[in-house]
């Protein structure tokens, strides 16, 4: 099992990942327990699933449109975005879009999730990470503090470019940007 980091701590994970059946069909979702299902299953069985006793979550492929979930936010306890390879950066944009659409709940990165990307992922809106199996979760916790002051605005803070900047003027300023 991949170790889960949530809100910058190692956390227990109650969620199970439902994979499409091998023949391509959609397996049944158990009535109890917290299940994370593919978007296709959710779209198909949204009504039945909402009546389960366990909690519902959806995982998105990075090619899927996050807007398809926007009307269902109140029915979900978790949204995950899968990284097929850590070098495939589409998931970062998906996360930002989900936050912009108003998703306030847990946003989890799953798949090829590595320590050295946690800082960026956090700034794009992820707050939970199911690390790839070989990752040292304890060591990974230090990645959140790789940088103390980002340059540009993102999701996580009210940073504005250059807010903390001032001082110095010289005689003839040929450098006016205006």
């Amino acid at each position: 099992m991949a170790t889960l980091i949530k809100n910058k701590r190692i956390a227990p994970d109650s969620w199970q990942l439902l994979k499409p059946a091998a023949e391509g069909g959609l397996p049944d979702v158990p009535v109890t327990g917290d299940w994370l299902v593919p978007l296709a299953i959710w779209s198909e069985q949204r009504t039945q699933l909402s009546q389960r006793s366990g909690r519902n979550g959806v995982w998105l492929e990075n090619t899927e449109d996050p807007r398809l979930l926007a009307l269902d936010f109140d029915k979900l306890a978790l949204i995950a975005v899968r990284f097929p390879k850590f070098t495939d950066g589409r998931g970062y944009s998906i996360a930002r879009l989900l936050r912009r659409l108003g998703w306030k709940g847990e946003l989890r990165a799953v798949g090829d999730v590595l320590r050295d990307q946690l800082f960026y992922m956090t700034r794009c809106g992820f707050d939970a990470f199911a690390l790839r199996e070989d990752q040292d979760a304890q060591a990974a916790l230090t990645a959140f503090s790789d940088f103390s002051a980002p340059y540009q605005p993102a999701i996580d803070d009210g940073v504005r470019l250059g807010t903390v900047r001032a001082e110095s003027k010289t005689a003839i300023n040929t450098l006016s940007p205006w």
């Binding site: 850590f86 070098t87 495939d88 950066g89 970062y92 944009s93 930002r96 990307q117 800082f119 960026y120 992922m121 956090t122 700034r123 794009c124 940088f147 980002p150 340059y151 540009q152 993102a154």
Partner: peptide, 9 residues
Amino acid sequence: STFHPEFAF
């Protein structure tokens, strides 16, 4: 663009 979190990959 320096360490832009969304556009590194």
